[in-house]
Simulated scan of single mutants.
Amino acid sequence: MHGPFNRMGRRKPMNEINVVPFIDVMLVLLVIFMITAPMLTQGVQVDLPQTPSEPIEDSESREPIIVSVDRDGQLFVSLGGDDTAVDLDEVARRVQVLLERQPGTQVLVRGDRHVAYGQIVTLMSTLQSAGVANVGLISEPPPGEA
């Protein structure tokens, strides 16, 4: 007698794993990540100044706190995707709270190239008074360099 039953009427244990459901789940996850990945990098629309510079060496794996200034001069504090407009005092308060939770986190400023220089300096001064020792500025490489 051949088949999955032996002479006593019991089933033989199956020695192979059905991987088709796992493949289905992986394909669905792949599609979801392919659709959502471009959305994660959206954020505040800022026209960054272009300058040749070296990237910042990040010795720690923490995500930096990014303070953005858009073309209209609105301020945004971003750590993990929260992009709501705030005023200068709220920027200082939020950055101070974030630094109390995670000391040593980098603070970077993304300023639109059309924003007045004085507004960026005021922002940097406010960040310094909130306890930020070093503020980094984000720029884009000129066309042709990458």
Rank of each mutant, 00 (worst) to 15 (best):
residue 80 G to T: 12
residue 94 R to T: 09
residue 142 P to T: 06
residue 66 I to N: 01
residue 58 D to I: 02
residue 64 P to C: 13
residue 135 V to A: 07
residue 28 V to K: 13
residue 87 D to W: 01
residue 85 A to R: 00
residue 83 D to Y: 11
residue 93 R to S: 15
residue 40 L to A: 14
residue 77 V to G: 02
residue 44 V to A: 02
residue 112 D to Y: 05
residue 135 V to Q: 09
residue 17 I to A: 04
residue 136 G to F: 08
residue 9 G to L: 12
residue 78 S to R: 15
residue 125 S to I: 12
residue 111 G to L: 07
residue 116 A to Q: 12
residue 125 S to C: 08
residue 63 E to D: 08
residue 50 Q to P: 05
residue 52 P to W: 01
residue 88 L to G: 00
residue 102 Q to I: 10
residue 104 G to Y: 05
residue 77 V to A: 07
residue 66 I to S: 10
residue 17 I to W: 07
residue 51 T to W: 04
residue 103 P to K: 11
residue 36 T to A: 14
residue 59 S to A: 14
residue 127 L to M: 06
residue 129 S to K: 03
residue 77 V to K: 07
residue 95 V to L: 04
residue 72 D to W: 03
residue 8 M to L: 11
residue 46 V to Y: 02
residue 12 K to E: 13
residue 56 I to Y: 14
residue 102 Q to S: 12
residue 79 L to N: 09
residue 22 F to T: 06
residue 109 V to M: 11
residue 136 G to I: 02
residue 77 V to Q: 06
residue 143 P to Q: 13
residue 135 V to S: 00
residue 34 M to K: 03
residue 144 G to D: 08
residue 4 P to K: 07
residue 138 I to E: 15
residue 29 L to V: 09
residue 67 V to Y: 01
residue 61 S to T: 10
residue 96 Q to Y: 00
residue 108 L to P: 00
residue 118 G to T: 14
residue 124 M to L: 06
residue 28 V to D: 05
residue 141 P to V: 00
residue 91 V to T: 06
residue 105 T to P: 02
residue 67 V to N: 03
residue 105 T to N: 09
residue 122 T to H: 07
residue 28 V to W: 12
residue 75 L to G: 02
residue 50 Q to L: 06
residue 11 R to Q: 06
residue 140 E to D: 15
residue 38 P to W: 07
residue 144 G to I: 06
residue 53 S to Q: 14
residue 136 G to N: 10
residue 71 R to P: 03
residue 17 I to R: 15
residue 118 G to F: 11
residue 30 L to H: 02
residue 141 P to G: 01
residue 20 V to D: 05
residue 144 G to H: 05
residue 99 L to I: 04
residue 4 P to R: 10
residue 117 Y to T: 14
residue 33 F to V: 07
residue 75 L to E: 07
residue 119 Q to E: 12
residue 12 K to D: 08
residue 108 L to N: 10
residue 22 F to W: 13
residue 81 G to K: 13
residue 27 L to S: 03
